[in-house]
């Protein structure tokens, strides 16, 4: 629990909207750039992984932001 509270306190300091945008940017890049590129190379699995990384990054970053700003 100490570690968890440490992490939360750290996040309050440094998890800001800029970081969220950064992660969302990476996620979008994964979904739209990498996934398509992989697909055109014929690597379906990689394309899928890329897409999922992107989606989960976006979701998690927004979720964490809500968590940090409004809940804890």
């Amino acid at each position: 629990m100490v570690i968890l509270s440490d992490i939360f306190s750290w996040m309050k300091y440094s998890y800001n909207i800029g970081f969220v945008f950064f992660i969302i940017g990476v996620g979008l890049g994964s979904i739209f750039l990498d996934a398509n590129q992989m697909k055109s190379k014929g690597l379906t699995r990689e394309s899928l992984v890329s897409k999922w990384i992107g989606i989960s990054y976006i979701v998690i970053s927004i979720f964490l932001y809500i968590l940090v700003e409004f809940i804890i």
Binding site: S14, F19, F22, I23, V26, G29, S30, D34, A35, Q37, M38, K41, L43, R45, E46, V49, S50, I53, G54, Y57, S61
Partner: peptide, 19 residues
């Protein structure tokens, strides 16, 4: 993870390193 292409993992790693 048996992926054939390392390219797709590079930008996803950056937020982790950044954090």
């Amino acid at each position: 993870f048996g992926l054939k292409e390392q390219k797709i993992l590079i930008y996803p790693l950056t937020p982790v390193i950044f954090a």
